[in-house]
């Protein structure tokens, strides 16, 4: 066999900037940071609730600070991106079958959005009564 002197190419660090689908993928993955941000945010809120009425009011006031609002807005956009992409990938990742027939992707997607609506309504009800 002849020896192969192949040229080895390497991927640039910015491989994900050039193609829209790669860019969207990396944005989707970066939503993880903002999921963690909201976990911390909710923990701060919970700890304030535990400390009493005044602490709770203070945290709500702090959350109205423009800087916090901006960070939260960015984080919220990424969380929505996470929700939309997660729902879109679910039917691709699982092979749901009812009576031997594959459930169409649109039905899986629709049922997830129904779930989102139900959960959201429940949370709003629970929190505000």
């Amino acid at each position: 066999m002849t020896e192969v002197r192949a040229y080895r190419r390497t991927l640039s660090t910015w491989w994900w900037v050039r193609k829209p689908s790669y860019f969207l993928f990396v944005m989707r993955e970066l939503s993880s940071i903002f999921v963690a941000w909201f976990v911390l945010y909710l923990l701060v809120l919970l700890s304030a609730i535990g400390r009493g009425e005044e602490a709770y009011r203070d945290v709500l006031d702090l959350a109205a600070h423009p800087l916090v609002v901006v960070v939260n807005a960015v984080a919220f956009a990424f969380v929505v991106l996470h929700t939309v992409t997660w729902f879109a990938l679910t039917p691709k990742a699982m092979d749901a079958r009812v009576a031997g027939r594959r459930v169409p992707a649109a039905a899986v997607m629709a049922s997830q959005y129904v779930g989102l609506a139900v959960v959201s309504a429940f949370v709003v009800w629970l929190v505000t009564l």
């Binding site: 689908s21 691709k92 990742a93």
Partner: peptide, 26 residues
């Protein structure tokens, strides 16, 4: 695999490797 999904998009025979990989993880 981080489920980029590009393999399925470019497959000329509609094999859906990305779906196969996620099902394998499960």
């Amino acid at each position: 695999c981080t489920f980029v999904g590009e393999c399925t998009r470019v497959c000329p025979k509609h094999v859906d490797p990305a779906g196969a990989i996620q099902r394998y993880k499960l």
